[in-house]
């Protein structure tokens, strides 16, 4: 069984936001909401400065707080560990939004809670998620973490990576290469 994950190479990412816009097109994300976003983390004082640059989204955690918190099971794990919301089962209680340490979810105008799906509909056709496809710097990669031939697997073997808020014990599957 595949275990899907994504890497963002902070060395390459320039926070251009092509990923944000590609995702908005691909998934018809409503105005005012974003399934992914970019961050510039600035450290230091002039002239000794550094910036960490990355593109963040739902981390498709292996121990997802949102899945635990959903009373109807609308938030669930799909094949490969992709966390998805079944809109037809979502009652709009928003417990998942409050449970998520990463604030990755939003309320869709149609009344259900929505978020990044790792473009499951594309993955099923053997394509990369829209954000990974568009990225002009090649900072994003997606694949089966357990497949030794996948880019993400090889990157995580070769390079140091971090996850967001490791203390939350959510076991995210979105990794940021340093």
């Amino acid at each position: 069984m595949a275990r899907y994950g994504m890497t963002c190479d902070q060395k390459l990412c320039v926070t251009c936001n092509a990923c944000v816009l590609a995702c908005k097109n691909e998934n018809q994300v409503p105005e005012g909401a974003a399934r992914c976003w970019t961050v510039q983390e600035e450290k230091g004082a002039f002239p000794l400065l550094s910036i960490a640059t990355r593109s963040e989204r739902c981390n498709h955690c292996e121990n997802a707080a949102c899945v635990s918190a959903c009373p109807t099971g609308a938030s669930h794990y799909e094949a490969g560990g992709i966390v998805v919301v079944s809109a037809d089962k979502c009652v709009g209680c928003k417990a998942c939004i409050l449970a998520c340490p990463y604030e990755a979810r939003y309320v869709h105008p149609d009344g259900y809670v929505d978020k990044c799906t790792f473009c499951l509909h594309r993955v099923k056709k053997g394509l990369d998620p829209a954000c990974v496809s568009v990225c002009p710097t090649g900072a994003l990669a997606f694949g089966d973490l357990d497949d030794p031939t996948s880019t993400v697997h090889k990157q995580l073997q070769a390079r140091k990576a971090e996850v967001l808020k490791p203390d939350e014990d959510t076991r995210p599957k979105m990794f940021f290469l340093t």
């Binding site: 079944s86 809109a87 009344g111 499951l120």
Partner: peptide
Amino acid sequence: LMPSREAQGAQDTSV
């Protein structure tokens, strides 16, 4: 503007 989409199971957002 956008092709309309009902609140289907959000797994399939393909157009």
